[in-house]
Design a protein around this nucleic acid. Structure first.
Length: 221
DNA sequence: GCGACAG
DNA sequence: ATCTTGTCGC
């Protein structure tokens, strides 16, 4: 797929904040998805050579049957450190390179990390969604910001994630008795719809099939 | 100032 | 993210 650069890539945290503050106004948190969804993609990262090389993996699956349709890999020198709140600047360059090789354009992308459940409401799912103008959902394995009530142990139960008096996402149990996931809108997907798709993509394990496939590719040799 | 902190 | 074996439980 063809990808257009929206901005120069930052060198410093200060430049990164400016980009986030600008682009966050382009994020759409209501449903604007193709109907029906035919292809769902998962994206994940791995690192090689003591972290100096970034490897991005993309897996496109059919929906709702979740069969692998296509996968790609891309490698790049790691150019930005890991700083909480700035994950996208570290990971997106390699992800875009892997997505450029994809033939099957996904209707929805599940990202490893937060969407608007972010200090400036612009996590990696938002950033990728705005760059591509494709619907995205943030699916994180741990909390970045916000608080929530305890939730019951059964699959499908969830609680709103609150930050500064705003509902920024949901804590969602995708498997009974297992640690929950942190779900938030990335771009062109509402929270309720995000929860719905994440549950449809987790028929068996805690993590969505999309990210499980991408994860294997990204962290294998 | 102190603590928290996606991957 | 990554370094790493066995082990507890369904």
């Amino acid at each position: 797929m063809q990808i257009y650069q929206l901005h120069d890539w930052p060198e410093t945290e200060k430049e990164a904040i400016a980009i986030q503050e600008t682009l966050k106004h382009q994020v759409i948190t209501i449903d604007q998805l193709k109907q029906p969804i035919q292809y769902v993609a998962g994206v994940d990262m791995g690192f090689l050579a003591n972290g100096t090389i970034s490897r991005a993996a993309v897996a496109v699956l059919s929906f709702p049957d979740l069969q692998v349709v296509e996968t790609t890999l891309a490698h790049r020198p790691t150019s930005f450190p890991y700083i909480p709140g700035f994950l996208s600047f570290r990971e997106i360059p390699a992800v875009l390179e892997a997505l450029e090789k994809i033939q099957t354009i996904p209707d929805l992308i599940l990202c490893d990390g937060q969407g608007i459940a972010h200090p400036r409401r612009f996590g990696i799912a938002c950033h990728l969604g705005v760059i591509l103008d494709i619907p995205t959902i943030g699916v994180a394995k741990s909390l970045l910001i916000g608080k929530h009530e305890e939730l019951s142990l059964t699959r499908g139960s969830w609680q709103p994630l609150i930050h500064k008096n705003e509902i920024v996402g949901a804590v969602l149990r995708t498997r009974t008795g297992v640690k929950p996931l942190y779900i938030s809108s990335g771009h062109r997907v509402s929270l309720g719809t995000a929860i719905d798709y994440v549950l449809q993509c987790t028929p068996k394990y805690r993590l969505p099939e999309t990210t499980r496939i991408a994860d294997k590719l990204a962290s294998s040799r």
